[in-house]
Nucleic acid binder design. Sequence first.
DNA 1: TTGTACGCGTTATCAT
DNA 2: ATGATAACGCGTACAA
Lengths: 355, 355
Amino acid sequence: MRNKKNAVPAVATANREAGARATLGMVAAACGVSPSTVSRILNGTAVVSQDKREAVDRAIADLGFIPNPIARGLAGGRTLSVGVVTQALDSPFYGLALSGIEQELSPAGYSALFVSGNWNADEEGRCIEMLRSRRVDGIIVLTGRLSDDELRNLSGSMPVVVTGRNLSAPGLYSLDFNNFEAARLATDHLLTLGHRRIAFIAGDPIHPDSTERLRGYRAALKASGVRYNPALVLPGKYHEESGLLAVAQLIESREPFSAIFAANDQMAFGAALALYRRGLRVPDDISLVGLDDLSGASHSIPPLTTIHQSVDELGRIAARSMLLMLAGKTPDANLPEPRLIVRSSTRAWQPGAPV
Amino acid sequence: MRNKKNAVPAVATANREAGARATLGMVAAACGVSPSTVSRILNGTAVVSQDKREAVDRAIADLGFIPNPIARGLAGGRTLSVGVVTQALDSPFYGLALSGIEQELSPAGYSALFVSGNWNADEEGRCIEMLRSRRVDGIIVLTGRLSDDELRNLSGSMPVVVTGRNLSAPGLYSLDFNNFEAARLATDHLLTLGHRRIAFIAGDPIHPDSTERLRGYRAALKASGVRYNPALVLPGKYHEESGLLAVAQLIESREPFSAIFAANDQMAFGAALALYRRGLRVPDDISLVGLDDLSGASHSIPPLTTIHQSVDELGRIAARSMLLMLAGKTPDANLPEPRLIVRSSTRAWQPGAPV
DNA sequence: TTGTACGCGTTATCAT
DNA sequence: ATGATAACGCGTACAA
């Protein structure tokens, strides 16, 4: 099954036509130098004479040689791949981050191994074991359910970048959106428009960002001298259906409100649908603000006023930080601050609102 | 940099605590057998005496040994990984497919290498080169811009599963939705409701499914004896903005219509927004049907009547077919037929529509 | 049944 | 500046 290595040039060229792969050894043989020299040229590890370099470069182009990352990994102890633990591959939020990660990793010659933990700590653990067994050079964890200690532990054996948390350790870099400020901005926008009875659909308390967003909501109210009313805070789970339910529940409660701030866009979409079903118009009757600025937000009905989080930028920065750590440097990038995007789901408060 | 191999058990255990990985050689040394024996036990390649097997099993568990897929790949010529070429990682449509692929591949011990071609043939070519250099065992191509010949060519060197086409070759399996029937169903639904002036927002003609969907639209009209009116067919590009533009253009043209069938949900969302901006109500003034049944369709305003395509099932079946080919068998699975999902964006035609 | 020896494609170390 | 040689961790003929 094995065929001879270091075939002569003619054969190598023939092989290439046949779809077979050229190897470093074949390149070396083709121009009469040692494999080490070829390797050095490839990696810029040492100075090589001009003529040899040219000969080798030509042979490389000629044979269509591409170094084998597998063998490279075996020999060099690195695989030029980084593992990415996400929570869902089909998510308007995480999808953007994955995209950003790939955009940054590919040009650097790294591949991403995407695995999804599905919001399950056990599954996430298995994913990480799998990534370790594949010898990824580092791991990027998007949010996740793992404990901080597990993460710190992992960072002992390889560089780790984690989003949605704020913890530090050697070999560990964390990146988080300013959830507090995002929620504060959203609430403040409604307050500025004159709204006072502002309902808040909270996120799943299991996410650390949920409490931050609640804090931002309360801080904005306080700064405007509006009393915090617990009856206006509804539990949600960050998906559309929970936003819909929350609003249904809110209306049932007969607690008056003129605006809603949903802790993420998906819940805002659900909320909008609930209002629509009750015959309440957005923004004429009720103003609505989301958070995230998912791609769907600009084409929802009405286009959703929301807080923009640069999720693709999150991905890019996470990847860039990983690349830096892999190069032995220390990352220090931060995420851009959230900013308000005013579209058509909010308007100034009017006396005599229906609710 | 290299450290000694075949460390004695005590050291191995210590290493394990330190986060270092056990190797097959270490397992062999730990119980005084040869590496080949361990390998055989791992792969069930040959019969091994009971006592050795037990000793080895114990050592494996003890050392927490996990075979290194990299080395395995180098030696055995397989990597237990399959490449997946998608067009976008952040897409409500492809995301579902990726998710389905991972769900099927993981339990089988395979990893997926997701790369995105961004609707660009060159980039797609580079992706495939990268996957080949990483020695993936097979490649799944979601739609893509590659020519059929390139695909057939690729399938010469490894198993290939491609979606969105209908071609066959040894080592190549293709899977496609019934786009014709999907479009026929959508159009027929509107016809059944009494609509006669049904606009069609077509997809990007560069996608082969676009022409199929147009065919389905025309076939349904014909079957109901409705004359095909080219003025009611608008060009689109499968994204929200193009749906919005198409409707704006349609209204400008002053060609009367009472219903719109958009060739995918994303364009339907854009269409809904355009109608909303003109003060036209869905479904009261205009009925609207999409195609795909994206997750957002059920929470749009109003919830969108559409044709369900099991995109996650597409991913799962593609992966299952790949697994079959990898096992030397011939896949023969087919995609489920599209089905109509009636929600709230359509209603019976009323005389005296505003347009 | 088990072990030996070699190869997979590359990098790193040590000579020269 | 360059080459020989030895790993990297595993699979697999072949020998025993």
